[in-house]
Amino acid sequence: MKTKLFNLALAAALAIAITGCGKKEDTNEQPVANSNAKKVIDTSTVGSVTGSVTLDGKPAPIKPINMSAEPYCLKAHPNPVIPPEVVVNDKGDLANVVVYVKDGLADYNFDTPKEPVVLNQQGCMYDPHIIALMAGQTFEVKNDDQTTHNIHPMPKDNREWNKSQPPGASPIDETFGRAELAIPVKCNVHPWMKSYIFVFKNPYYAVTSKDGKFTLKDLPPGTYTIEAWQEKYGVLDQTVTIGAKESKPLTFTFKTAAASGD
């Protein structure tokens, strides 16, 4: 009797283990539609926010990547590669910062762009390091390397997936249905390969270039909370009011631990 009960319990536990996990991942995830009546943007009144992101202080030195685990990757870079976590020039201009409208656009609805956003794997690094796209927009992953990668985004609100991409394989097309910030992306074959994906409900976002500049254009008049996100230094918020056809400048300054006195 005891043996039967034990076997039954073991079988039940196994069945729960196999079937009970992973329900969160619904592969038929669809973009969350803004079904309520929404305002239409009057293109004759739109303005913009243009600005730059800088870093106050000297960033902590970052150790170069050790690519010795994969001879192909090692060969692809004659010089040591510094992880692109903090990309800053001599003037303090900060690249790879995501600037976006955090609040103020609830009454508008936006079309999803048709063209895909491309993430390339080149020299065992992700290019670009930060990806921003709209919910439902195609996310295309390419492999230019002569080695195998796996692409593994780990979202909290979207569907998690993990796909392999051998050399010469056709691009992988995926979408993210829900808006979500800073989805980590990893290659578990090459653990230094890390990236972040930002998925927005609106088209008002930008990733700063090497000169730290960004532009959020075609913004309808209104008051907005603009947020800037940096991988190591977190987020900064500012509120800005834009009138009809107005262009507002905006500057974000992140501080290193030394500069902020921490």
Partner: peptide, 15 residues
């Protein structure tokens, strides 16, 4: 420890 748990996305075969 090598963060390699997801390096092979398929099972029982590998790639």
């Amino acid at each position: 420890s090598n963060d390699a748990a997801d390096s092979v996305p398929d099972w029982p075969l590998a790639y």
